[in-house]
């Protein structure tokens, strides 16, 4: 029983942490139509920033600031946001698949920087010993994880409420209009470049926040945490849950992370030992299968979007 509970807590921490990144992607893709294929890169920026700001001093590696956890989270958001502004200024004039190719390339570059810039990132060894605030508040992994879960739930709720507030507004309406038809929105007086950059930046800083929460929980950050597969997972979570709906984003994170971890467990029990080495590939195939099935059978995801954007346009 304790085993199930502790696993459930562990599961929810990671699923909600990813859910925050999915909400960020939802702002970009679901609301604005920005094809960001570089989610992994922004998770990495957030994760490393958090590790550098809160981590202990190390030989020959930058950092040792040992700042409070919350500073690490905010710093991660700011760093990912700044990188997003730079990337955005260069790429946001690109359309659709061109933006996807550019952001994918940037994420791969960020990952390569993480591997090679040892002074900043610890290189292939990564950065260990990132303090987890729950460790000083309670004894025993179960309680500690429960505290961390409460923290992640709190951050997720804050992000959800904040995002709902900002997208159910005239600002969100402009985002959606640009997603639907940029030429028409522009002919009706809206400046697409400005709001695209705002949505891109805010979405990426949420990815940074997600990366920071992940690293804060695991206590370690390494370059292999941010391979392109994670971008694919975050995208699948959004499509399965329902692009354009923040509740859908969180639900999708739960479902896809559930399938990912559940299938990993099932494969370890069912599949013959000589195939176990391929379990990661099997999991990826399964996620791809869910993605394709969703697109075929429920193209709007589990929860579709509303036709009314601004809360001021709803009937009382």
């Amino acid at each position: 029983m304790i085993g199930v509970l502790s696993y459930l807590i562990f599961f929810l921490i990671l699923a909600l942490t990813f859910g925050i990144a999915v909400m960020g992607l939802n702002l970009q893709w679901g609301f604005t139509g920005l094809f960001n294929a570089g989610v992994a890169g922004f998770l990495a920026v957030g994760g490393y920033t958090h590790a550098i700001l809160t981590g202990p001093a190390r030989d020959a590696v930058f950092g040792g600031f040992e700042l409070p956890f919350i500073v690490g989270l905010l710093g991660a958001m700011v760093a990912a946001g700044v990188v997003a502004i730079i990337v955005g200024l260069v790429t946001l004039r690109l359309r659709d698949e061109y933006l996807a190719v550019a952001t994918f390339g940037i994420a791969v570059s960020i990952q390569l920087v993480a591997v090679n810039w040892e002074y900043m990132t610890g290189g292939t060894l990564g950065l260990i010993g990132i303090p987890n605030p729950s460790k000083v508040l309670a004894d025993g992994p179960l309680r500690q994880n429960a505290i961390y879960l409460a923290l992640v739930v709190g951050v997720t709720l804050l992000a959800y409420i904040g995002l709902q507030r900002i997208v159910q507004s005239p600002w969100g309406r402009v985002l959606k209009a640009i997603r639907e038809d940029e030429v028409a929105a522009s002919s009706l007086g809206k400046n697409p470049t400005r709001v695209r950059l705002e949505a891109f930046t805010l979405g990426c800083s949420l990815m940074g926040l997600s990366g920071a929460l992940y690293v804060g929980f695991i206590g370690f950050v390494g370059a292999t945490d941010f391979l392109p597969i994670i971008t694919f997972q975050i995208w699948t979570m959004l499509i399965v849950g329902g692009s354009g709906n923040m509740k859908g984003a969180i639900l999708g994170a739960m479902i896809v992370w559930g399938v990912w971890t559940g299938s990993g467990f099932a494969i370890s029990k069912v599949v013959a030992p000589e195939w176990q080495a391929q379990s990661g590939a099997l999991q990826a195939v399964l996620i791809g299968l869910i993605l394709v099935l969703t697109l075929l059978m429920r193209p709007k995801g589990m929860i579709g979007e509303d036709v009314t954007v601004s809360r001021h346009a709803t009937d009382l």
């Binding site: 402009v174 929105a185 009314t308 601004s310």
Partner: peptide, 28 residues
């Protein structure tokens, strides 16, 4: 060229220029 997944009402409401709520910070 309507905004297909938006209501007729909001297709219209998005139009007026310089709405305060179009600025990100004003909503906060």
């Amino acid at each position: 060229r309507p905004f297909p997944e938006m209501s007729v009402l909001e297709n219209c409401m998005m139009v007026p220029s310089a709405q305060a709520g179009e600025a990100f910070w004003a909503n906060w």
